[in-house]
Simulated assay, not measured.
Amino acid sequence: MKTNKLLFLSFIFISLGFTAQAQRGARIGYIDMEYILENVPEYQEASTQLEGKVQRWKKDIEKKNKEVEQMKLNLSNERVLLTQELIEEREEEIKILENEIMDYQQDRFGPNGDLMIQRRQLVQPIQDQVFNIVQEIAENKKYDFIFDKSADVVMLFAAERNDISDVVLRSINRAAKREEAKTKREEREIERKEALSAEEEGAVTEREQEIEDRKNEREKMMEERRRQRDSIRNARKAEIEKRRERILRERQARMDSIEKAREQKRKERSQNNDSGNDDNQEE
């Protein structure tokens, strides 16, 4: 089936090659779906969440496999002490658990498992959005053919000037921004950018990037100043705490010394009283 598909696609490309050679006016473009997906924040966030699920599923399988291995080890160690009936029961229990693990793996990672289903659900909305945007670009920019570079179609060469992935990606980001726009001013700014040509938008984007870079540089400087200020403040705080602890130790030492001296005096008075009583008894 896949071979027939590749042959069909090859036939299309050969036909297009002859057509393009006969008609030099044909305009061809392509997109890189993988590149687009990598730069859509919503997709990346959902993909990260899905990856978290995958890791939990793998841990569940690993845990169950360890249980099976432990059961096999226990059976091996206890086999000489068990009757044949008990041995068969243990083996049946292990077999049932192994089948459950296999079913769980198929449910999660099989061709129709949760992973494949959720990946399709994750990609489908963006693919639909890309398809609609490509249709608009093809009509507005007069493209004759637009291909997906990341699909099964084999591209032996693709000039970068024909790559419209960034155009599609900008359209996706604009659609997301339009949904997030909260004021009329923000909506007008988005509409103004949409009206720009690719060259003008590139210039605007470059200026915005310069502004963003300067903003980031100022934030870095402020962060460095805050870090230095916090470092000085922490050093002073540590010094004050150290001085406070030293004062408390010295005060405690003086109090201990006074208490020791008082205790010594009490002992001396007690000894003197005892000595006086002895003298009185002798008289």
Rank of each mutant, 00 (worst) to 15 (best):
M1Y: 11
M1H: 10
M1E: 10
K2T: 08
K2E: 07
N4L: 11
L7W: 01
F8A: 14
Q23L: 06
Q23H: 08
R24P: 05
R24N: 00
G25T: 06
A26I: 12
R27I: 01
G29D: 00
G29K: 09
G29V: 00
Y30Q: 06
E34V: 08
Y35W: 15
I36H: 02
E42N: 13
Y43E: 03
Y43W: 09
Q44F: 03
T48V: 07
Q49R: 09
G52I: 00
K53Y: 13
K53C: 01
R56I: 13
E62K: 09
E62T: 01
N65F: 01
N65C: 04
N65Y: 05
E67N: 02
M71A: 03
K72S: 15
E78R: 15
V80W: 12
V80S: 13
L81T: 09
L82W: 09
Q84P: 04
E85L: 02
E92F: 05
E93K: 03
E98W: 12
E98G: 13
D103M: 13
Q106D: 12
Q106A: 07
D107L: 13
G110C: 05
G113R: 12
Q121E: 02
L122E: 04
L122V: 06
V123E: 13
P125V: 03
N132A: 13
V134R: 03
V134L: 06
Q135T: 12
I137D: 04
A138T: 00
K142W: 03
I146K: 13
F147V: 02
K149D: 07
V153N: 09
V154C: 06
L156P: 02
A158I: 11
A159Q: 13
D166A: 14
L169S: 06
L169C: 11
S171D: 04
I172Y: 00
N173H: 09
R174Q: 04
A175V: 15
A175K: 14
A176N: 10
A176W: 03
A176R: 14
K177G: 07
R178A: 08
R178G: 10
E179V: 06
E180R: 03
E180N: 04
K184D: 11
K184R: 11
E189V: 10
I190F: 05
E194S: 11
E199M: 06
E200D: 04
E201W: 08
A203G: 06
V204Y: 10
E208Y: 02
Q209R: 00
E212F: 02
D213Q: 12
R214K: 12
R214D: 15
R214L: 15
N216R: 03
E219L: 10
R225F: 06
R227S: 11
Q228W: 02
D230C: 04
S231P: 12
A235Y: 05
R236L: 14
A238Y: 00
K242G: 13
R246P: 10
R249T: 12
R249G: 09
E250Q: 15
D256T: 06
S257A: 14
R262H: 11
Q264A: 15
E268N: 10
R269T: 09
R269N: 07
S275V: 04
G276S: 08
D278I: 02
D278A: 03
E282A: 10
